[in-house]
């Protein structure tokens, strides 16, 4: 599990002022949990995500991954093995010259024995439907395929947690649906010793409807947390924060305020189509 207590992170602006990007965050994510994180641009989502695997260090407060503190440099390699990241633009995280080497890259760095590495690479290529591109250079893949490769390379290292930082912004509808259903599959994967933990950052409320919990960040603070239903039912609040809500929740809110509210949509009918 990841435990965040009293996390502050600030930096100095060019005007010499101190700006707090993260302003006292307390947060825990249990193993196997699926959490969606939303918030307006500039609310600190990416900064927060980067604190969770030690890419950024808190100004004060603590981030612990299974009791390993991110402020202890000696723990960082192990923390990053346990907490993988998938970024918005896969081009920023792909480093190798072929698809196969990209998946092997992290394993090589971990010192995984050669025979085992070959097996994991082959399995991963198969699982992510990338086997036919084995020897292709990654930049010749489509955006959706590249994001799939980025995810595959992370999954190959078998992290307990994967953090997705707006992984769908560069994808089209089909690519997005495919990514979400891949994540569903990973959560259901019975072959894992422990169920995968995910934190999914997005601007698209429909993409967090299947999460256990949705967290809203605003100006560096967690301002709302709850089940998707609980969070998205706070229509006025979400609007004032500038965070989109799924359309069915907006319509239900309108039905409640304009009629007796006896006839409402059933939100579960409008989960993302995959």
């Amino acid at each position: 599990m990841i435990n965040v207590s009293d996390l502050y992170l600030g930096y100095s602006t060019s005007g010499g002022q101190r700006r707090r990007v993260l302003d006292g965050i307390n947060f825990a994510i249990e193993d196997g949990e699926r959490v969606g994180l939303m918030g307006p641009n500039g609310s600190g989502k990416t900064t927060f995500a980067r604190c969770l695997n030690g890419l950024l260090s808190p100004s004060s407060g603590a981030v612990e991954v299974d009791d390993l503190s991110t402020t202890n440099d000696a723990h960082l390699p192990e923390i990053r093995r346990r907490v993988g990241m998938v970024f918005q633009n896969p081009e920023n995280q792909i480093v190798s010259t072929t698809v196969e080497r990209e998946i092997a890259f992290g394993l090589e760095n971990l010192g995984v024995p050669r025979a085992e590495m070959h097996k994991v690479v082959a399995d991963t290529l198969h699982k992510f439907d990338l086997a036919r591109y084995r020897t292709h250079p990654p930049h010749r893949l489509s955006g959706g395929e590249m994001q799939r490769l980025a995810l595959a390379s992370v999954v190959a290292m078998s992290p307990q947690t994967i953090i997705f930082d707006e992984p769908s912004s560069y994808l089209d509808g089909a690519g997005r649906r495919q990514l979400l259903s891949l994540i569903d599959d990973l959560h259901r994967d019975q072959s894992r010793p422990k169920a995968l933990t995910t934190l999914f950052i997005t601007q698209y409320p429909d993409e967090v409807l299947t999460c256990d919990r949705v967290v809203i960040l605003d100006q560096g603070k967690i301002v709302i947390t709850g089940s998707p239903e609980e969070v998205f039912s706070q229509v006025a609040r979400m609007e004032s924060l500038g965070v989109d809500i799924p359309l069915e929740f907006a319509v239900n809110d309108y039905l409640k305020t304009t009629s007796d509210g006896r006839l409402l949509l059933n939100p579960s009918e409008f989960l993302p189509i995959s």
């Binding site: 307006p40 641009n41 918005q88 707006e166 912004s169 560069y170 601007q203 500038g242 989109d244």
Partner: peptide, 8 residues
């Protein structure tokens, strides 16, 4: 509008 929040 790719990557922008609701307000943007």
């Amino acid at each position: 509008t790719a990557g922008l929040d609701a307000a943007g």
